[in-house]
Amino acid sequence: MKTFVTAALVSVLATSAAFGAGHSVRLGTEGAYPPYNFINDAGEVDGFERDVGDRLCELAELDCTWVTNDWDSIIPNLVSGNYDVIIAGMSITDERDEVIDFTQEYMPADPSIYVALAGADGPGETISAQTNTIQAGYVAAAEGMTLVEFANPDETVAAVRSGEADSVLADKAYLDPLIEESGGELVMVGDYVFIGGGIGIGVRESDTELKDKLNAAISTMKSDGTLNAMLEKWFPGHVGY
């Protein structure tokens, strides 16, 4: 924000010379979904996807900048060109594929799980999920369940803690650390739910060149073992490639 304010001030003073710098790719992420992506204490994007993204940019020789955007409007803002890439734990689905394009997956499909307060005997009736996620879509269509939508992943879990929702449905990899840290307050209930495919990088449908570069880089990371190492670092015990 510091750079942003100075930038805004500079822009008032300097009118031209805006389009001079070298080719850069803007990586859009949510910044609120640890361990996938989050803002660390230094105010920077951190997490699994930070590692993956930085390595991909290195391999594809791209000059990358990280930007954060609300999950809710993350696809429209990609399409409108606010950034060039979505790397935000986004499952590849048909519905999204109609609007944007995906690279090959850089993380194998992760099951979704229900998490409730200790003592619950099932997912219950009122399920919280983040707006516009595959989980929200799943609960919205499920019989006998009521969807409570929140804008942030954090709020979906807070709703369970406060008793507002019976359980939360989200990616297992997101909920696992929270269960672990809760000291028995939160537990997994019910069975695994398999909803989405693997996680891929979203690009505009017209950006085929960028997509090819990223695909090549992901293949390299898969074959040289660096991707597996990152998966193991951020998601201990997760299936790799």
Partner: peptide
């Protein structure tokens, strides 16, 4: 559900530095 303009028409232009996008 797509809005497609040529890359020269994008605002800000794709390769612009970070602060241009923010501004």
């Amino acid at each position: 559900h797509d809005f497609v303009v040529c890359s020269a028409a994008k605002l800000p232009l794709g390769p612009s530095p970070e602060w241009v996008h923010d501004t």
